[in-house]
């Protein structure tokens, strides 16, 4: 089984505060890996190191390495922008740009220089279909993305990320701002997406992790407590802390 990411002894500090402590794990390709843990445990931080979005924060110090496609993404010469075209991200709160649906999805490709109208149309259509949104919006691609419902907006953000044809999609609590019906739709979508992409999802909803993920990592206070196949984590965890979290003793 090939790995999308190989993380080795990753440490991250915000100023003096240690957010990630000696994280070591592999993220397999074409599977869904969930990161769970109580608030502040570092799961979002970990997710954001995978596409180096942590660079945007001041006072961040990182050591250890993360390998993507055999290369250390923290190396000096490593092209961060290129990384982000291959590792896409969907955020917690749906945040379509204040533009039309079409322009939102075409944004990424346009930034990469694609200008041909026909090519862009193909890309937009394909992305919307793969994000299970096409039928709902095919007649109003020119309308503002802000007019869509919360669930539709989030699927739009997924379509926007897919338009870049990434290998990996990172999702940071993608359904926490949505109602249960929209959540269910997106969970189905994620299961579909697994066929083409590697997915890493942060969720504070354990049942969601249990429902859709193949592997689950449990983090607590910046440390990786346990990482294994989802079935094992949820039925037979090895660490006591994992069990306590799963059964709701804390968090």
């Amino acid at each position: 089984m090939e790995n999308a990411f190989t993380i080795n002894q990753l440490n991250l500090k915000y100023g003096e505060k240690k957010a990630l402590d000696q994280i070591t794990m592999d993220i397999p390709k074409n599977q869904i890996t969930a990161l769970i843990g109580p608030s502040g445990c570092g799961k979002s931080t970990l997710l954001r190191t995978l596409n180096r979005m942590n660079d945007l924060i001041d006072n961040v110090r990182i050591d250890g390495d993360i390998r993507y496609e055999e290369q250390d993404i923290f190396a000096k010469e490593y092209d961060v922008i290129n990384l982000r075209t291959k590792v896409g991200m969907v955020f917690q709160k749906p945040n379509p740009f204040p533009m039309s649906i079409f322009d939102n999805i075409a944004y990424g490709p346009r930034c990469q220089g694609i200008k041909d109208r026909k090519v862009l149309q193909e890309i937009v259509e394909r992305s919307l279909i793969n994000a299970a949104l096409y039928d709902e919006v095919k007649d109003r691609l020119k309308e503002s993305a802000k007019e869509l419902s919360g669930g539709q907006q989030q699927r739009l953000c997924i379509a926007r990320a897919i338009a870049m044809e990434p290998d990996v999609i990172l999702m940071d609590e993608p359904t926490s701002a949505l109602d249960p019906i929209a959540t269910a739709k997106i969970e189905d979508l994620i299961l579909e997406l697994k066929k083409k992409y590697t997915i890493v999802i942060v969720t504070h909803n354990m049942q969601q992790a249990a429902r859709i993920s193949d592997n689950t990592a449990f983090l607590l206070m910046g440390e990786l407590i346990e990482y294994d196949k989802t079935d094992i984590i949820f039925s037979n965890p090895k660490e006591t802390k994992t069990e306590e979290y799963i059964t709701g003793r804390f968090g």
Binding site: R84, T85, F91, Y107, R160
Partner: peptide
Amino acid sequence: EYRQASLALGAT
């Protein structure tokens, strides 16, 4: 969030 989403898509 707009800035983050844009950068996450690989824009400069």
